[in-house]
Amino acid sequence: MIRKIINFYKEGFLSMEVGKKLWLIIGIKLFILFIVLKLFFFQDFLSSKFDNNKAKSDYVLEELTNLNK
């Protein structure tokens, strides 16, 4: 069964024409999104500053209540 599924995908990928170019684009795109952008530019702001939810909550509460003081 598993071999059938693997063969199904394998044959499908091998018989692609436009698809090969598309997979290349998808690969480049995912590399840019998840490796370049996510790792270097889009770190989760709260997780990068605080280790636990309590600290995150305290920080956001502080932000929300002190913004216009």
């Binding site: 889009f42 770190q43 989760d44 702001f45 709260l46 995150k56 909550s57 956001v60 929300l64």
Partner: peptide, 10 residues
């Protein structure tokens, strides 16, 4: 997560 963290938490 990065630009709108107060919102994401809220």
């Amino acid at each position: 997560g990065t630009n709108w963290s107060n919102y994401s938490w809220f």
